[in-house]
Amino acid sequence: MSPQLSRKKARRTSTHSALLFAIMLAAGVLLQVTASSHADETDIVLKDGKGRDAVVNNCGACHSLDYVKMNSPFLDKAGWDGEVTKMIKAYGAPIDDADAKEISAYLAANYGK
């Protein structure tokens, strides 16, 4: 059974593409369609504000940003804090403390209730 796992793992070692994606997204670059990402997500526009870049660069590495807008506006600051903490603790998102604070402040201010 290890061949399956190692193949899957090997495929993932090149997933700096996710981070690259976030950078390209931030730069407004249109991506080609691939099996795992969809070019049309570059149409998603988050509200202007302090912390938006931190959201795009960090959150956008693993998921499209429609997740943010879809989950609004019903979470309060504590609710968004909880989501950011979940992404770091449960989903292993490599977000530093300063960015985490900026992200939840931005989400609460722009997509909170």
Binding site: S36, S37, D40, E41, H63, D66, M70
Partner: peptide, 28 residues
Amino acid sequence: LPAGVATEALLEALPGKAPLIKLAYRPP
């Protein structure tokens, strides 16, 4: 539905699929 859904939901077809209500692109 939460109001935010209306700004993002689109009828869209993934390759090999008919148009469905897109809630999130990635993961789909």
